[in-house]
Design a protein around this nucleic acid. Sequence first.
DNA 1: ATAACGGTTGAACGGTTGCTCAACTGTTAT
DNA 2: ATAACAGTTGAGCAACCGTTCAACCGTTAT
Lengths: 120, 120
Amino acid sequence: MPVKKSAPICDCDVIHSKLVERVRKAMPREEDFYDLADLYKMFSDSTRVRILWALSAAQMCVCDIAVLLNMTKSAISHQLRALRLANLVKYDKKGKTVYYSLADSHVKDIFEKGFEHIRE
Amino acid sequence: MPVKKSAPICDCDVIHSKLVERVRKAMPREEDFYDLADLYKMFSDSTRVRILWALSAAQMCVCDIAVLLNMTKSAISHQLRALRLANLVKYDKKGKTVYYSLADSHVKDIFEKGFEHIRE
DNA sequence: ATAACGGTTGAACGGTTGCTCAACTGTTAT
DNA sequence: ATAACAGTTGAGCAACCGTTCAACCGTTAT
């Protein structure tokens, strides 16, 4: 979704050119950074974080989450869609109701790392 | 920075009320979720992620980062300000140049967890 | 003194994003 | 058949966010 510039647009001289070259060589691909940012984007909104936390506590349907967070089904459904597309949650349809749960254990790990940092 | 609603605006009935009550009781404070989201917001932009990665590789000045990422000093400085306010980076002024580095080791941990998830 | 340079700042813009609203699908109950 | 309900979807709007631009501050060199 972002732009890739080819012409150098930096408005200053390199100060430590050797250092910069060394770091540049070790740098992951541009794409990996976008993927990483996209992953953390899912954790960067308090509604999504609360949904993910709730699902880490129990499998829940859309109405349950809506009641828990005091929000509309629609708002929750929109966010669940984003989480689904990011492969962070999976769902299981049983009749009218759709049960959501975390896709894998990495999500819980990411939570813990975050809370760990907050309570430094 | 968000809004706190008091009147129930949920537009549906609870389906699993016992479950919801159990989860609600175990839920962290609202504020913690905002703090967590704010933390991950710093990782949710590819420019900031690349800056953080660069600083995890070496202490660098603003011009170094600008050259490395092929962006203007101004853009980098704005992002560094955000990272500073979030206590993710610290700086050390030596004459004209300002050297930035990671504030603590948690940042590297968060990186690794993220990359781990991407290469599932 | 003054020019040059590293870095910061605030306003302005364009793009993104989260929620609302209303309409809709699909399943169950009557 | 039809009503009721769980959930989804798309358009629209307001708030937010990242970059640019121009002006600025502090330090160093001339």
